[in-house]
């Protein structure tokens, strides 16, 4: 009797162990993704950096039109001058996964800016009116960027991924004004003339269909020399360094559409030209929603950067369109 009971207990235990092991093994097989499926992962589900050997490239179009600014009293105002500035760029972006944790980025922009202004000078006493116009276009290769992302900690069920990201901007674009026709009419430079190093740490957690990120970023500007006024020598200048904090809450609208909601606050120190401070400080609070359409390995991203509040910063939205393909 006792032997029979013991035998039955042993059989039950073995069955349970085999069953559990099979369950675990089956569950693990279910989670396993094919390389093709990994390449079709979305902005929500993909790893923090590209996997080894993966290559993603695309073009980034951006457009903004200067209409309003946040002045130094944090008030959104329209500049009183009859001047307008339209900024457009088209850029090539490329990302390569050197290892599962190390990603390289390249950004090559082509700039096409148009700035113009006009005024009317009137001498009622002598019945004379003169209309003045100036135009400063900037066209050409902008400053290229090279970035390295390293995933320090990969994501675990109870831990977010931690990625250290560094980007360096080189002076590849023309930094000086050219084609000077007169004091007011010339070609503005498409380059900034100032190298930049951006370092950030990004925490990211995926909880399908949601993902959350938190980023702390520091921009270090190296300063430089360039011709600021036509006919004059180069002057030294330096942009104030920036510290920024970003957080995003992102979700899938359906399996192939994702909405990314990015909120950023940054604070920048004073800008200097020839040793004199031109802007004492600047900061902004920005909302940046992205709409991702993912069709297999192809991505169409639309985004509008909306400054909500700021100081010495543009108050105009910037429209961004990105087309990407994952090889």
């Amino acid at each position: 009797m006792k032997k029979g009971l013991l035998y039955r207990k042993r059989t039950l235990l073995i069955t349970l162990v085999i069953g559990i092991c099979h369950g675990i093994a089956y569950g693990q097989t279910e989670k396993y993704l094919l390389p093709t499926e990994i390449k079709e992962q979305t902005i929500i589900t993909e790893p923090a950096t590209l996997q080894k050997g993966f290559f993603r490239t695309g073009i980034i179009l951006s457009h903004t039109f200067a209409d309003k600014i946040f002045n130094e009293s944090n008030k959104r105002i329209s500049p009183t001058e009859s001047a307008s500035a339209e900024t457009k760029s088209i850029a090539l972006g490329a990302h390569y996964g050197l290892t599962d944790r190390l990603q390289l980025n390249l950004y090559v922009p082509y700039i096409s800016n148009k700035m113009s202004a006009s005024s009317i000078r009137e001498w009622p006493g002598v019945d004379s009116i003169v209309s003045d116009k100036w135009q400063r276009d900037a066209k050409g290769l902008g400053d290229m960027e090279l970035g390295v992302y390293y995933q320090v900690l990969t994501e675990k069920p109870k831990r977010p991924s931690v990625t250290l990201r560094t980007t360096f901007r080189f002076n590849t674009g023309e930094k000086n004004i050219t084609n000077i026709r007169d004091e007011e009419n010339y070609d503005a430079p498409p380059g900034t003339g100032e190298p930049l190093l951006a370092i950030d740490v990004r925490l990211r957690k995926v909880k399908y269909p949601y993902s959350f990120t938190f980023t702390t970023e520091y921009f270090y500007y190296f300063g430089g020399n360039k011709v600021i006024n036509p006919g004059e020598d180069e002057l030294s200048f330096r942009t104030g360094n920036i510290v920024a904090f970003m957080g995003s809450a992102n979700f899938h609208v359906n399996e192939w559409i994702a909405l990314v909601n990015d909120v950023m606050y940054f604070y920048g120190g004073g800008d200097e030209v020839d040793g004199e401070t031109t802007v004492s400080e600047r900061w902004a609070f920005i909302y940046h929603p992205y709409l991702y359409f993912q069709i297999k390995r192809f991505r169409l991203v639309q985004s509008v950067e909306i400054p909500l509040k700021g100081c010495a910063y543009t108050a105009d939205p910037q429209y961004i369109l990105i087309l990407q393909y994952q090889f």
Binding site: S78, E81, S82, S118, W123
Partner: peptide, 10 residues
């Protein structure tokens, strides 16, 4: 915005 105007009166 309208065009900026400079008036020179005497």
């Amino acid at each position: 915005r309208s065009n900026v105007k400079y008036l020179f009166i005497s």
